[in-house]
Design a protein around this nucleic acid. Structure first.
Lengths: 198, 198
DNA sequence: GTGGATCTACCAATCGTTTGGTAAAATTAT
DNA sequence: ATAATTTTACCAAACGATTGGTAGATCCAC
């Protein structure tokens, strides 16, 4: 008989999908097991606890973003603007199709007062994101301003995604992306004109 | 004998405080009762269900914002800029001290797939907010742009509050407020110069 | 037949909710 | 004013359902 063994990656993917739509407290171990075609008791063959599973999901997702998305910020084959463009395209996919971009915010807000171990990973995720972005903005701003700008951009994107989700309007994110890209171009031009004036 | 009757307003206030720190699914009826000095069963003397209580809390909070905060947008005793300033001051109090500003987002995200009745109130709250703000921006922008701008401002503020909460950095909101106020001033100046150029 | 994978059956705890009952307060009748 | 009655406010206990988690039996591939 066919034995489609359940590998870790699939387990985490299935679990993410459930956590995403039901939140942490709203998800039962039964739900998690069913998502991987198991009965409740069986999933404990793979995991130690519901909490440790969520932690692993969060860490895997963070790792995915760092290596697959944020790393674009340091791709030397592209100009800074092109990197931001790449990031923007990936972000739109992530937020609108995969819908994992707001996962950190959802879980972060839901468990901030009850589960500090989650909060730690989530904090690090946002620090990664802001760090990568501020590297980019260093090309057009000084260090301090670059950080502030990166923080602002992350806040605006997250805010847009949330409003998009709650109000059901898909245009929020698109408009934010365009604005952020235009702003970067403007900063680039300002810098060039400043150089010429010096 | 003393009889400190529990009035509705106090009940809702106590319940809000619990829901705020534990979320909807994370809050038990026991928690809610205890917050008002009752045992679990006794709270059903006042409420029909946990769900109806949350709904009442959401509606009361929305009403509070509409009448006490958003109404500033139409205060004819103030200039448009002063109204935005008033709003900004109130918003900062609300988000940093009362911490009720992100309540709608928290509950909205947590229950969007499980409780449409909550989502309806939360949607209306944001529509109220955006509506009031776009009235203000109508002074310096045409109708369509005013709405887009209002949506953007709400998204940016919400994003800032969330980042503030997760990263524990209180400067986010302050910087956003300043930026939004400056931007309004700029829009005002642009409009004036445009009038002069016509 | 050995070992991993999965099921069934179960645990104690907690969930939201209902119940039966009680003491005090408010209302009504005298 | 007082007694009888009803209403209010609450408690302790228990409801059935569900929670996260465990243990032993069973299945299946090698």
């Amino acid at each position: 008989m066919a034995k489609p063994k359940l590998d870790r990656k699939t387990l985490l993917k299935n679990s993410l999908s459930v956590f995403k739509s039901r939140g942490y407290h709203g998800t039962s171990v039964n739900d998690l097991a069913a998502a991987s075609g198991l009965l409740k008791g069986s999933i404990y063959h793979y995991i130690e606890s519901k909490e440790s599973l969520m932690l692993e999901v969060l860490n895997a997702l963070r790792d995915h973003y760092v290596t697959r998305v944020f790393s674009k910020c340091n791709d030397d084959n592209l100009t800074p603007y092109e990197r931001l463009q790449e990031l923007s395209i990936r972000a739109e996919e992530i937020f609108t199709f995969e819908e994992t971009g707001d996962f950190f915010v959802n879980i972060g807000l839901e468990t901030i007062n009850s589960n500090p171990s989650f909060t730690r990973v989530i904090k690090d995720f946002f620090k990664d994101w802001i760090g990568s972005l501020s590297d980019l903005y260093r090309h057009v701003l000084d260090e301090q301003d670059a950080i502030v700008q990166a923080e602002r951009v992350v806040a605006e994107l997250e805010g847009s995604v949330i409003m998009m989700k709650i109000l059901g309007d898909v245009n929020y994110l698109k408009r934010s992306s365009i604005r952020i890209l235009n702003e970067f171009k403007e900063l680039e031009n300002n810098k060039i004109s400043k150089v010429y004036n010096d």
